[in-house]
């Protein structure tokens, strides 16, 4: 399966990636390789095989509804590119 630059452009938009034309070309080639490799699986007849939602057999892993410590605000905000000590700051989101 060949991935076209137009497909890369769409995925890049969804992932909020700003790619140059050269990068688009390179990505299209890389992605085509990856998808092509995985595509080999299509040679297998899977009719009658249940879709698998999870690779491991575990079920029903749950925790009690008991409060545990949260991060301190300083710690939570410390990795943010911008904050005001209380909130994360991001470029204005308009139009809502």
């Amino acid at each position: 399966m060949k991935i076209e630059p137009a497909d890369v452009s769409k995925v890049a938009l969804l992932a909020r990636l700003d790619l140059s034309a050269e990068e688009m070309q390179a990505m299209a080639a890389h992605l085509s390789g990856i998808v092509g490799y995985v595509q080999q699986l299509q040679e297998i007849d899977t009719s009658g095989v249940e879709p698998m939602a999870h690779a491991i057999e575990l079920r029903n892993v749950m925790a009690k509804d008991v409060v545990a410590a949260s991060l301190s605000r300083d710690a939570a905000l410390s990795n943010a590119p911008r904050h005001d000590g209380e909130y994360y700051l991001v470029p204005a989101v308009l139009g809502e």
Binding site: Y87, Y88, L89, P91, A92, V93
Partner: peptide, 14 residues
């Protein structure tokens, strides 16, 4: 979304 002029940031509380 802060309406105050000069504050163009959106503040996020998670």
């Amino acid at each position: 979304h802060d309406e105050i002029a000069g504050r163009a940031d959106t503040r996020i509380d998670l």
